[in-house]
Design a binder for these strands. Structure first.
Lengths: 126, 126
DNA sequence: GTAAACTATGAAGTATACTTTATAGCAAGA
DNA sequence: TCTTGCTATAAAGTATACTTCATAGTTTAC
């Protein structure tokens, strides 16, 4: 599979795909070269890149992902552990947002005293 | 509350707290100035910054957060409408977080059912 | 066979999110 | 009072994650 096909399938710019190879997010396992030196990608590259995209979307860094990819870097248990940690972080955010929402509903009922979790607070005398 | 106290409580560098103010992540609502021009923070700043931190940790950008913070300075007459809008916004965020969580569970699933989500694939002849 | 379209590389440029530096005023203890 | 430590600002610097540019070889369509 040529680079433009991969780009289309995973909806990433060609430049990004080459960049991911350069920094080690795409390993040689997924690529061989044709006679003309063009990259030839394994079909599994699309799955790999979808996972990378999702990881980036939920706040993992390139380095986090490289650590997960690295053969002798991180065990599967470690991968599972940090993903579960990330889920916990998200659940904390969800809780905070839920609190904010509750505050807003209170305000609707009780007339406006303050705004929400991102909102306006009056400074108090200390 | 002085800036160093806030920094300690929310575990952020002082420079970051000043930076957040500069770019509008911390609004004037949370700050007044003492005679000596030192910042004096409202107690609620800690809650605000915890939420900001967690949002950043799960992949929101500064601009996402600014969008969530804004719309607080609108007309008083329409406060009820604004609050309802805010609730809708929060629900959108919650939806986004739910998606992120699903993605993470997908990754866990992939790790468990496939040999490894980041694993080694052999190139196939096409 | 030639122009358009695709591939390659290395290097420079960009956006985001901070951090550090330089300079200076204010505060509290010895 | 003097020194240490906290505060302030503006501006420059840094790290991350890409993107664009310059240049050049290859393939495809006409």
């Amino acid at each position: 599979m040529k680079i433009s096909e991969v780009a289309k399938m995973v909806d990433l710019p060609i430049s990004t795909i080459r960049y991911y190879e350069k920094i080690g997010i795409i390993t040689d396992d997924y690529i061989r070269r044709e006679q003309n030196n063009y990259r030839d990608y394994a079909l599994e590259i699309t799955h790999h890149l979808e996972v990378v995209k999702k990881c980036l979307a939920v706040g993992f860094s390139i380095n986090d992902i490289k650590a997960m990819i690295s053969k002798n870097g991180m065990s599967k248990d470690d991968q599972t552990r940090i993903i579960k940690e990330k889920i916990s972080e998200i659940e904390e955010v969800q809780k905070k947002l839920e609190d904010s929402k509750e505050n807003l509903y209170d305000i609707l009922e009780l007339d406006i005293t303050c705004e929400d979790g991102f909102g306006k607070y009056k400074l108090k005398d200390t």
